[in-house]
Every structure is written in C-alpha cells, then in structure tokens.
C-alpha cells in the first residue's frame, strides 16, 4: 500500500505536465491564458455595440452564425483605450460552456511553461491587471503573466477579491 502511494507520488513529481499557454501582448507585456480555454483566434471583425453594456464589454460579434460577446482586455485592465489595428485579434474562448471573445493588441505564440517555472502572483502591485493574475511564468528571460480567465469574466468575483484584499 505504502509503496503504491509512493510510486504515485513519484510519478506526480517526475511527470509534471507542461502547461500550454497562449500568450498575447498588451502594451508590450505578455499575458498567457490556458490553451485549454481557447477555441480559436480570429482577426478583428465588426462588433455590434449592445446598449447598457459595461465599458469593457464591447458588444457582440457574429462568428459563423454564432453570437459571441466580446470583451476588450485593455479596458478590462483599466488601461486606456487604443485604436484597433491590423494586429488586433479576438481570442475566442470557451469557459464553462460560455463562448467569449477577448480583444487583445496582438497574439504572440503558444508556449509550454513548466509548473516549476510558475511563480505565485506577486502581491498587489497597484496595477488593475494584477487582479486577474494567478501566476507569473518564466520563459527564457521573459515574464508571462498568467491570467485566470474566470476572473476576466466575472465582475462579482473580482469585487469579492477586492474586499478580501482590503
């Protein structure tokens, strides 16, 4: 029994599955979201504005007949709005069976980041973006801020976090 558990533990230690992240840039900073949440990446398409939306939710898009709400990540991070250009992309994700698009400045690459290379998120540094970060991945000399896509969506959760931190 003991040897079995030990073997299992060892296995867990040795075979740490590298986690894949899709990285994108906002203001030259790399962010990563778990690849398992990502459905596809599309170039910017016309966004229909929906009245009464909060600021960061830009509206809805038509993805081959599917209506998908899109969130501007810049605005979500309380960063100043920037005009969309040819490099602007929408990352379509599926989180908890919910299709959501994230508008980002530029999509970079898919990277493997070993569990061991992920540091816990630094304690509050003042930037609003840090509320969404679950860890910092190191790859080469680069730092990739790993995002919790749940938190990107959910206003209440973020609000709750704020309360805890205060």
């Amino acid at each position: 029994m003991d040897w079995l558990q030990q073997a299992e533990l060892q296995e867990q230690e040795t075979v740490s599955v590298p986690n894949q992240y899709l990285t994108f840039a906002i203001d030259e900073q790399s962010f990563g979201i778990s690849i398992s949440d990502v459905v596809e990446i599309i170039s910017l398409c016309p966004i229909a504005r929906v009245p009464q939306f909060s600021g960061y939710a830009k509206g809805i898009i038509n993805l081959r007949g599917r209506i998908i709400p899109v969130i501007d990540v810049r605005l979500r991070f309380h960063l100043p709005e920037k005009d969309y250009d040819s490099r602007t992309c929408i990352i379509i994700t599926n989180i908890n069976d919910l299709d959501i698009g994230f508008i980002v400045d530029e999509v970079q690459e898919v990277v493997d980041i070993d569990e061991a290379d992920v540091e816990p998120a630094p304690k509050l540094t003042g930037s609003y973006a840090h509320r969404f970060i679950i860890g910092v991945g190191k790859r080469g000399g680069r730092m990739i801020l790993l995002l919790d896509s749940q938190r990107l969506l959910n206003e209440e959760e973020v609000a709750a976090l704020d309360v805890v931190r205060m």
């Binding site: 929906v50 939306f53 909060s54 939710a57 809805i60 998908i68 709400p69 299709d99 969506l153």
Partner: peptide, 8 residues
C-alpha cells in the same frame, strides 16, 4: 443573446 449578457 449570449447567456453571458443575461446579467444585464
């Protein structure tokens, strides 16, 4: 409309 928007 997407269910994400139902909170609005």
């Amino acid at each position: 409309l997407p269910s994400y928007l139902s909170s609005y």
